[in-house]
Simulated scan of single mutants.
Amino acid sequence: MIYVLVGGPRDGQHVDDLPRGYRLSLADPPPEPFGEFETVRAVWFELDEVLFRSAQRRE
């Protein structure tokens, strides 16, 4: 499965592993074909962005 990232720092990228800060949107349409794979949208959540920044400061 391929994820299409929507919003956030990686907007528009296609990835095969869901990165931190992105969540699957249950309200989106069913997966769409992308070559031999299916794609689903993963959206950036502002709350996750705040948590992500906090985690970076601790590192």
Rank of each mutant, 00 (worst) to 15 (best):
P9W: 05
F34Y: 12
P31E: 08
V15E: 02
Q56V: 08
D48K: 02
H14K: 14
S25H: 13
F34V: 15
G7H: 04
G12V: 14
L51E: 15
P31T: 09
E59H: 09
Y22K: 01
F52D: 14
V43D: 03
R58T: 11
P9C: 03
Y22A: 01
Y3P: 04
G35E: 05
D17K: 12
L24R: 11
E59Y: 05
R58G: 05
G21N: 03
D11Q: 13
W44L: 03
G35L: 05
G8E: 07
T39S: 08
G21S: 04
R23G: 00
D17G: 02
F45Y: 04
L24G: 08
P33M: 07
D17M: 08
V43S: 04
P29I: 05
E36F: 05
V6G: 01
L26S: 15
V40D: 04
P9K: 12
E38M: 14
L47C: 01
L51Y: 06
T39E: 14
R23T: 04
R57F: 09
L18N: 08
R10C: 07
V4L: 15
G21T: 03
V15T: 08
L26F: 13
V40G: 02
Y3F: 15
T39H: 01
R23N: 03
L47V: 06
P33A: 13
E32T: 15
L26R: 15
F34K: 09
M1C: 07
S54Q: 11
D17S: 13
E46P: 04
D48I: 00
P19K: 04
L47K: 06
L18K: 07
F52T: 09
P29K: 10
Y22D: 00
E46Y: 02
D48T: 01
G21L: 02
R58P: 01
E36H: 07
D11H: 15
G12N: 13
G7Y: 03
R10A: 11
Y3N: 06
P9Y: 05
S25I: 10
Y22G: 01
E49Q: 08
S54E: 14
